[in-house]
Amino acid sequence: MIAYGRRKPAKGLIHHSDRGSQYAGSDYQELLGTYSMKCSMSRKGNCWDNAVAKIFFHSLKTEIGR
């Protein structure tokens, strides 16, 4: 994980994703555990869960870009 090596986040970082098979798979979940990251996923079949996170990060990126 290149981003992890560059940023060196504190233990307990929350990784939010949708329920895609690549994120829900045991290999990926094990990797998150290796880096002491906590997994956060949207509820099954509820696309609106990610909408709040996307709006927040869009606002954050817009403010930082100024």
Score class of each variant (00 low, 15 high):
Met1Phe: 12
Met1Pro: 12
Ala3Asn: 06
Ala3Phe: 02
Ala3Lys: 06
Ala3Glu: 10
Ala3Arg: 05
Tyr4Phe: 11
Tyr4Cys: 12
Gly5Gln: 13
Arg6Trp: 04
Arg6Gln: 11
Ala10Val: 08
Ala10Tyr: 08
Gly12Pro: 03
Leu13Trp: 01
Leu13Asn: 03
Ile14Pro: 04
Ile14His: 07
His15Tyr: 07
His15Lys: 02
His16Thr: 09
Ser17Ala: 12
Ser17Tyr: 01
Arg19Cys: 08
Arg19Trp: 00
Arg19Asp: 09
Gly20Glu: 08
Gly20Val: 05
Gly20Tyr: 04
Gly20Thr: 07
Ser21Gln: 04
Gln22His: 15
Gln22Tyr: 04
Gln22Glu: 14
Tyr23Lys: 09
Tyr23Leu: 08
Ala24Ile: 00
Ala24Met: 06
Gly25Leu: 01
Ser26Val: 07
Ser26Pro: 04
Asp27Gly: 03
Tyr28Asp: 07
Glu30Gln: 08
Glu30Phe: 03
Glu30Gly: 15
Leu32Ser: 14
Leu32Ala: 11
Gly33Met: 07
Gly33Tyr: 06
Thr34Asp: 13
Tyr35Ala: 15
Tyr35Asn: 15
Tyr35Arg: 12
Ser36Val: 03
Ser36Gln: 11
Lys38Glu: 04
Cys39Ala: 15
Met41His: 09
Lys44Val: 06
Lys44Met: 01
Gly45Met: 02
Asn46Glu: 10
Asn46Lys: 13
Trp48Thr: 14
Trp48Met: 14
Asp49Lys: 08
Asn50Asp: 15
Ala51Pro: 04
Ala51Trp: 00
Val52Gly: 09
Ala53Asn: 10
Lys54Pro: 00
Lys54Ala: 01
Ile55Met: 11
Ile55Ser: 15
Phe56Asn: 06
Phe57Cys: 09
Phe57Gly: 13
His58Tyr: 01
His58Cys: 08
Lys61Asp: 06
Glu63Pro: 00
Glu63Thr: 08
Ile64Leu: 14
Gly65Val: 01
Arg66Asp: 11
